[in-house]
């Protein structure tokens, strides 16, 4: 089932790229389409942050994982590079589970 998802994601992502290179520009270049394309990643990524941080199964849970993501936000505020942000989250979450 995961392999199916991997292959469908791959095929779909490729087709989305190919369509952009292949259709005449005016077909999709309307302000409403452009605006949606800008905001869609924002809404989806924020949703993934929220669910990944606070939800376990179908329950809200604030635990070491949420603390790790909070620490990652601090790292981002301090303009840390991507890998440092991730490592901050990992180290804080793992550290809290040890104590």
């Amino acid at each position: 089932m995961i392999w199916l998802g991997v292959l469908l994601t791959s095929a779909g992502c490729y087709l989305l790229k190919l369509v952009g290179l292949s259709v005449p520009a005016h077909v999709l270049e309307r302000p409403a389409v452009r605006r949606t394309a800008e905001l869609l990643p924002v809404a989806l990524l924020a949703a993934l942050v929220g669910v990944g941080t606070l939800v376990t199964g179908s329950h809200l849970r604030i635990d070491a994982r949420a603390a790790g993501v909070g620490a990652a936000a601090v790292a981002l505020l301090l303009r840390a590079p991507f890998l440092v942000v991730i490592l901050t989250a990992v180290v804080v979450a793992a550290g809290l589970r040890l104590v």
């Binding site: 989305l16 952009g20 292949s22 394309a37 869609l40 989806l44």
Partner: peptide, 23 residues
């Protein structure tokens, strides 16, 4: 995994607009 595919494709749709600019 199918919900994962749908989310991935929605995020991937911005590449379509990049393609328009690049063509």
């Amino acid at each position: 995994p199918l919900a994962g595919v749908a989310t991935a494709l929605l995020l991937g749709s911005r590449n379509t607009l990049y393609g328009l600019r690049l063509s």
